[in-house]
Design a protein around this nucleic acid. Structure first.
Lengths: 158, 158
DNA sequence: CAATGTTGGTTCGTGATGCGAACTAATGGC
DNA sequence: GCCATTAGTTCGCATCACGAACCAACATTG
């Protein structure tokens, strides 16, 4: 079954961990997706809104964060703008650039999503004790750490 | 900032955990998505193939697992079949039902995905020690546990 | 300062995804 | 046998994501 002959000392007992990580990702995304669907929000748009609750990036930055092409972002933002969730304004420093930011409506939606998200994930977390939850959060944060700074979006190894 | 007045005893120190969980989900899906894109596979199709490596479900079951409607599954499977990844066959017990299963090509693709997935996730996991990895896997499994049996696919709380 | 190249965004066309509505066919209950 | 239910499919539509092509505003040269 195991084909780890060539590296007898660094085998892959991580297989189980990888599976668990992937499963938890699918489960979590499933839940987020369901909540988003109730507001007619795609996963990409949810992520965009999440970023905007924090920052005021340009189109290109936004696309880079999500690992998408700029045309995709154009469409995404155009539709979101039409729905009154975000707004575009020319960047002060660079005449070419366009800043994107949340409207007050958009900010409200983000808040709702956060609340509903926590509520929806609660049943999962409740299976762990308080100290286990703390531990889990700690481990995940350590694992992600410097990652969301620049590697995460989809170009981790390219 | 905190609006937890009404339930003074069950506050939300889990907020951090929720964030970490969601972030890890986005990061993980991003990686999976990138690998899938290299094979021209959507996330949904990847999940389908993963399930098929294990089982031989009907269309409706498959749709239920992913939390999708059956028409969506029809299209998904039709395209996958056209590409030679899966096949359909009438179910023996129920004349209406259609079983779906992997072709040998499809099975090979799944193996590739698994290998590449482990490789791509390795850098993340390496940030943790061996014992921490074991711990993390344990906690995730505990958290998901009975979940993937029937709750996960997108109807956790409905 | 003018010519050139680069960067930021948009538009267009195309394919995949996902859904609601409507349909066919097989099953099950009576 | 008749009717409701269930399994899959098809159709039309909106979204999402991309490559190609384009314009406008910088930046760099000479």
């Amino acid at each position: 079954m195991k084909k780890q002959r060539s590296t007898p000392r660094s085998p892959a007992p991580d297989d189980g961990l990888v599976d668990a990580l992937v499963t938890s990702a699918f489960v979590t995304m499933s839940i987020i997706n369901r909540i988003g669907a109730a507001h007619d929000l795609s996963l990409s748009l949810i992520r965009v809104l999440g970023i905007l609750s924090d920052r005021r990036p340009r189109m290109a930055e936004l696309a880079h964060y999500l690992g998408l092409e700029k045309q995709t972002m154009s469409g995404l933002i155009a539709r979101a703008e039409k729905r009154g969730l975000v707004e575009r304004a020319p960047n002060a420093d660079d005449g070419r650039a366009t800043d994107v930011f949340l409207t007050s409506t958009g900010a409200k939606v983000v808040k709702q999503l956060q609340v509903q998200g926590r509520r929806a994930l609660a049943p999962l977390l409740e299976r762990l004790s308080a100290s286990e939850r703390r531990q889990l959060g700690e481990l995940l944060r350590r694992m992600l750490d410097a990652d969301d700074a620049e590697g995460a979006k989809g170009r981790a190894s390219s």
